[in-house]
Amino acid sequence: MGFGLLAPALTIMVLMLLLPVMALVMLSFWSQSGFDIDRSFTLENYWKLIEPSDEPTVWFGIPFYLKYPIPVILMIKSLVMSLVATIAVIGLAYPMAYFVAFRVRGNKAFWIILLTIPFWTSYLLRVFSWKIVLGFNGAINSGLMYLGLIDAPLEFLLYNPTAVIITLAHSWVAFAVLPIYVSLEKIDRSLLEAAADLGDSRWQRFWRITLPLSAPGTIAASLLVFIPTVGDYVTPTLVGGPGGTMIGSLVQLLFLRQDNAPLGSAVSIAMMLVIAVLVALLLWAIGYRKMRARRS
């Protein structure tokens, strides 16, 4: 009975998620020859991602001894940019979540809805709004010129990795508040009272009770931000410019412009594997399972 009810949705998910991802994996072991796909098994696409070369490509002072270094460099760059954005997001979201959990009385729902609305409104438009803010003819430049603080528009605002990181952080920050808020809200208030009775100061209580107990929610929030932003495509395309491209831009390029779907598939699969391995390592390193078990 239970499986009968589950079957339609599960079937759709298997047909439209599992099979396509398997198709993507298969394609990554095939190769492109002209307009056709050569369906004989090959590791060529993956080899291409790591094929060594004697001539190093230097990027930020790091030499890459690779024939086709773009995917590896973009992957590292995407990971670093997402990591910075994630740290910024958590740093900004945590005090907000703390505020809603501990300071707001009565109309928490109002604040939650206020924080939820931006997440549901068009991602494309939220990213685009930063183009209006930071652009050459944008709000900051025209505003500063109007006030007479600068004579010519500042060109360093838009089309660089910093603009991408700011935009990513802005797009995801409201989303990160919710999981942190939930874990803060679940904290038994009597623990804080007990600590206060036993003479802990406000900071001691925060460091020894609130922060450790809210760690699972905070980690969940950082993963919910980090994982999708690594592969983001909209933000680097709209505000990144040539210097702010990320790995998602390469996938788009390989599929839609260079018509090399097998290589694009290999890049996508490699990207997902790298993210999965990094996340698994992180969770293992901090003992997430134990942390959650202790909480409940």
Binding site: V230, G231, F255
Partner: peptide, 13 residues
């Protein structure tokens, strides 16, 4: 949690 570009290319393929 899967980046939407991966879902998009997987379906495209």
């Amino acid at each position: 949690v899967i980046p939407s570009i991966v879902i998009a290319v997987a379906l495209l393929v």
